[in-house]
Structures are given as structure tokens and as C-alpha cells.
Design a protein around this nucleic acid. Sequence first.
DNA 1: TCCGTATTGAACT
DNA 2: AGTTCAATACGGA
Length: 164
Amino acid sequence: MTPAIHTLSVATRDGTFIASYTAAGLCRLSFPASGQRARLSQAAALPLEIRRWHAQLGEALKLALAGRNPAALPPLDLGGTRFQRSVWTVLRTIESGRTLSYGEVAKAVGRPGASRAVGAACGANPLPVLIPCHRVLAAGGKIGGFSGGMKWKRLLLAREGRRF
DNA sequence: TCCGTATTGAACT
DNA sequence: AGTTCAATACGGA
């Protein structure tokens, strides 16, 4: 993955997210920073293409935070290993309001028994919310973990009509 | 090679 | 219903 060249903020009613782009597409989305401020790109220096991607992201994120299914996303440049990408691809097929267990995702990528590795791949998801890693639960309906903090996982699931 | 992990299921209280 | 425990796949150092 080429290095990120632009970092922009996305204001939402849930806080200000941070999005990073490479020349190839969106590479990273971060939850509202609970500390340091990222250095943001100057608006005047933005290529038209990036502005368009960013506008598209804003719409998609707004819908996702409302618990709706994703609008079209800008091009993605996620990197990651083959295994991670295959996990993230499966995650994108889970509809709003539905969930899978780590073990079910492992089966779906053809590695039954790799449920623990699936958890690690979820934790490495560069696009939380948009790639719905919050829809992966532990077996037996337990909620499992979330690298962005459990409040976010509960909030996102609640917006989709799931309660815990 | 070793270590940590957003797991799992069985075997125990 | 809660706790412990071993087996497990993967990735990073």
C-alpha cells in the first residue's frame, strides 16, 4: 500500500472521524480522536478526485452511523494480508441488523477453526463502521471485543436494532 | 521460533 | 451459570 497522502476530518453527529487517503483510494478511517489531533491536509491542496472521494465517504459514513446499509464507497486501498482481506470481504457481505460469529466467518473464508485468527483480522480492520466488524460476535451471542472500544460496538449494533 | 490475540467448546465446579 | 483449560490459526518481531 502506498503511503497516505491526505488526511481529512469527517464531522458527524457522533464526533469527528479522521479519514486517510492514498493515491489509490481510502486507506483508513479512525474513530473520533480521544487525544492527539491528526495533521490535516489543507483544503486548497486537495486534488479534485480526493474531494470527490471524501464527499462520498461522508454520505456513506452518515448512513452507516444511522444503521442503514452502506451507500457506494470510494475506491479502497486497504493493504493487509491475503487472509485479512478475505475476512474483510466477508464482513462487507453482512447486512445491517445481521451478525455472524467469529467461527462462522472462519468457515466462510474456508478456514474452519481459525475463529481466533478472524478476531485478530477484525481488530486490524482499517475501516471500522464501513467494514462492519462490529457485526461479528462471539459464539453463543456473547458480544466479543472491539478495538475501537466496546461503547462503539454496542452503539453501532443498537443503531441496527440489536440490543445487548 | 516465540508470543499475543476482538475464540471456542468441553470439563469442571 | 460461572470458571478453567487446552487447542487453535494467524501475524509480527
